[in-house]
Write a protein that binds this DNA or RNA. Structure first.
Lengths: 130, 130
DNA sequence: TTTTTTGCAAACCATTTGCAATTAG
DNA sequence: CTAATTGCAAATGGTTTGCAAAAAA
């Protein structure tokens, strides 16, 4: 079960960690192939899964059925532009989460905002599962 | 292009708007069939799409590739329990968005939090597309 | 009648998986 | 040597689509 060092694994990790555009699996495959021409789709997905399991990357479900991958694991938010379609990282200068008004002040036209929390609900917290 | 009133459309809308568990398409199909036994998968998806286009419901991409549907359109956040797996609405009593500490105080054990903003970035705001 | 909507089944497409061959340790 | 990883190709599974028949307007 131990993790083995392979050219493919290292390439996938490096591509995701260097990317600043939240690429999807296809884009990652293409970039990895620039270095290791023979990698297959399955290998890319398997390695992305491993990296996510190890907490080295995050899988983003922005919209639609195609996942995007994020190499930045520090807590941060995202902005999806309806104009150019890019997904960008929002890094608060001050500790704490960004707010709608704070972004408006920096020039963003925020039209929607969704927030999702993950964890244990009050019932599960005091009950069975960990 | 005008919208026609059909049994199927009304049933889909009613099922989603009455649901408080953020059902997926399969669950909605099952519930709609309790009233209109003959509805097909395609019809359900087409009507969900229309409702979302009209802003009557929201499509949620919580995790994985299976969408969930939300009949509550007022601004609110979501909590996904790692224990029981339920997705619940978080409705702030006071205007404004819920925060991590606020939820902790009410008994939630928050382990992750993601925030996504949609709109126009500063460049697109002052540029071409509306 | 005219146009939208339906049901069915096939198509799509991102992701997953089985398996034999490779390869890291 | 032996267990993990790969490439390939086939399978999955949620969602979409083409089309002729049914139903609104």
């Amino acid at each position: 079960m131990s993790r083995r060092r392979t050219l493919q694994f290292d390439a996938v990790r490096d591509v995701v960690q260097r990317a600043c555009d939240h690429p999807n699996a296809d884009q990652i495959l293409a970039r990895v192939r620039e270095r290791v021409a023979s990698v297959s789709v399955g290998t890319v997905y398997r390695n992305l899964e491993k990296l996510a399991a190890d907490g080295e990357i995050h899988i983003l479900q922005i919209h639609g059925r195609q996942a995007r991958y994020d190499g930045m694991i520090a807590a941060h938010d995202h902005f999806v532009c309806d104009g150019c379609g890019t997904v960008s990282d929002l890094l608060p200068a001050q500790p704490g989460r960004l707010t709608h008004p704070a972004l408006a002040e920096v020039g963003y036209d925020i039209r929607a905002h969704t927030q999702t929390f993950f964890g244990l609900c009050p019932e599960c917290k005091t009950g069975a599962r960990a």
